[in-house]
């Protein structure tokens, strides 16, 4: 279900916790699985749960509680825009509108070519860099003016 490399990464995470506390690694394990699979189909969640010796429903509770896990397929590039107050004060809503217009999609939608998905995010803890957005959960893009958005999209288009 998961690659050897992913399993090794999960094993490294499990080792962080005391014996018998494998469940603590669920957040990392789901993250690792999501990076490999692009999103988290139920079979993958069940596999990860079994790997950590926990009920699949407990893993699903986690996967559905934390909003960076994707329970539906997303495009190759998931762009999550913060529209919370500090970002909004600095143009966050405009960043979102600009992206919607450029990509021709709304929030929680994916471009027909499967390249881009747009999400509305909550505070990312980088309000000093507002407006910010996240690319594929792990890359923070700061001070997103229209020019920088254009640059980013051009860069991602090529990938």
């Amino acid at each position: 279900m998961l690659s050897q490399e992913s399993l090794q990464q999960i094993d490294r995470e499990i080792a962080k916790y005391p014996p018998g506390r494998k469940q603590s690694a669920i957040m990392s394990a789901l993250r690792i699985a999501q990076v490999e699979k692009g999103w988290l189909p139920k079979e993958v969640i069940e596999f990860v749960a079994a790997y950590l010796g926990m009920p699949p429903m407990a893993a699903y509770e986690v996967a559905s509680f934390y909003n960076m896990y994707d329970l539906e397929p997303v495009g190759r590039h998931k762009i999550t825009v913060c529209t919370n107050l500090p970002c909004a004060l600095s143009g966050g809503v405009y960043v979102a509108d600009y992206l919607k217009q450029k990509l021709g999609i709304g929030f929680n939608e994916t471009t027909p070519d499967g390249k881009f998905t747009l999400k509305e995010g909550e505070c990312m803890g980088a309000c000093g860099d507002a407006p910010v957005l996240l690319h594929n959960n792990h890359r923070m893009c700061s001070f997103m003016t229209t020019e920088r958005i254009d640059q980013l999209l051009a860069e991602l288009e090529k990938q």
Binding site: R31, Y66, N67, M68
Partner: peptide, 10 residues
């Protein structure tokens, strides 16, 4: 000491 990450829950 270990690092643990959240994944989107205030």
């Amino acid at each position: 000491l270990f690092a643990h990450h959240g994944y989107g829950a205030y």
